[in-house]
Amino acid sequence: MSLTISDVERVAKLARLELSASEGAATVTQLNGILAFVEQLQAVDTTGIEPMTHAVELVQRLRPDFVGETDHRAAFQAIAPETELGLYLVPKVIE
C-alpha cells in the first residue's frame, strides 16, 4: 500500500493540518517510508489473537455520582485565545 498525494491530502484534512503545496511531496515520501516500515506486521499470522488495548487486564472502576467540581471558569478562560461573556469564541459556525 503506497500513499498518493491525494491520500495524504485526505488524511491532512481529516487531521485538520494545513498542508502547503511544498510540504505535500516530502510528506508523501516520509509517510510511505513509515508505512513501509510498519508493513512488516503483515508477515505475522495473528489469526485468533485477541487485540490488546490496555497494558493492564482490568475492568473500569466506577465513580460515585457526586458533584465535586466547582466553578473555575475565570482561571480556565484566562488562558483562552478569545472569550466573551463567559463563552469561548470561534468564527461563525454554519450548521
Partner: peptide
Amino acid sequence: QTQSKIFSGASIAFGAAPNVQACA
C-alpha cells in the same frame, strides 16, 4: 438523570451561566 457528568464531577444542572459547569 444523574447529579454529575458521565466522566467528571461537574454538575449537569440546567440553566447555569455559560461554562461555569465545565470543569477541567
